[in-house]
Design a protein around this nucleic acid. Structure first.
Lengths: 156, 156
DNA sequence: CAATGATAAATAGCATGCTATGTTAATCGG
DNA sequence: CCGATTAACATAGCATGCTATTTATCATTG
């Protein structure tokens, strides 16, 4: 009869697949919204932290943004290339450096955060406030569980 | 007083940020689970379709997996390099080719889907069945909204 | 049938992410 | 104070994804 097997895995009901697809769509939407500002998604994410507290070290950015150190090193390098940040030797630690926002980047805070808000709103357009809250809660719980599992794998 | 501004953007409550973080954690977990099988996440995702229906064209895979044609072309090239698929000229269309699963890849269906199920289960460990269903529904709705917005941007 | 336009893949170039290593500076135990 | 360890960055190498462009083949139509 049917040449296809009754597969045990339906990707349209797999949280991992849905998460991946959704994240790519969010990234594309954000990229298009902030491209006119000369910003890329990872740069925006990094600036979110630097706008909040300028002069953070690379290590501090890594902790706040949940990316690997090598990833952040590359992102900072691109941001420096694009004139969004500059580096200053850290006063207390010769290994570290402070990452400082330029005037150019400081001026992007309002339009960039507005763009990100537009993206979230368009994605959650038909969600009630209760649904938005629950959605964020569910994602946060999945993140916690995945982080625990990862820590367990590494710490085992 | 405080040197930091009362920022209008809290990334821990941004669906886009949470989606990105969650998707990266899912990808890491899946990568670790299927690495012993010699599979990478995008390869697994592609095989899910080929296990269901062997001999699909690149275009058909692109439609089913929601990635760009260039992305799929590269993924297929890596899979061919790794002995997971081979290509055969398409009988009816000289431009196209059928992508066929090798025996090696066929043997991975059971262990790989089991691995993916483990990852989903560990992420949704403390979710009730109702929460899991709602989570998938909310993600599916966000995906639909983002796709509509993207289509609007491109079709405008 | 030939010119045109559409379509399937391939390729180039780049951004993000990750793991694994290397370098240099700080720290700690003796 | 010194050697060993730890810590902060930098680099190398690779996988995924995307956009834009090129190439080859169809398909349509005049």
């Amino acid at each position: 009869m049917s040449p296809s097997k009754t597969s045990g895995f339906d990707k349209t009901r797999s949280a991992g697949y849905l998460a991946n697809h959704m994240a790519r769509l969010f990234a594309i939407a954000l990229a298009e919204e902030i491209r006119p500002l000369g910003l890329a998604p990872a740069q925006f994410m990094t600036l979110l932290e630097l706008w909040r507290k300028d002069g953070l070290t690379q290590k501090e950015l890594v902790e706040r943004l949940n990316v690997e150190q090598a990833t952040m090193a590359n992102t900072i390098a691109r941001m420096e290339r694009d004139g969004l940040v500059r580096r200053r030797p850290h006063p207390d630690d010769g290994r570290a450096q402070s990452i400082l926002v330029t005037e150019k980047a400081r001026a992007l805070e309002e339009p960039a955060t507005a763009a990100a808000t537009r993206v979230n709103d368009s994605a959650l357009n038909d969600f009630s406030q209760a649904e938005r809250d629950q959605f964020n809660d569910l994602m946060a719980r999945a993140i916690d569980a995945l982080r625990s599992a990862d820590a367990r794998r590494k710490g085992a």
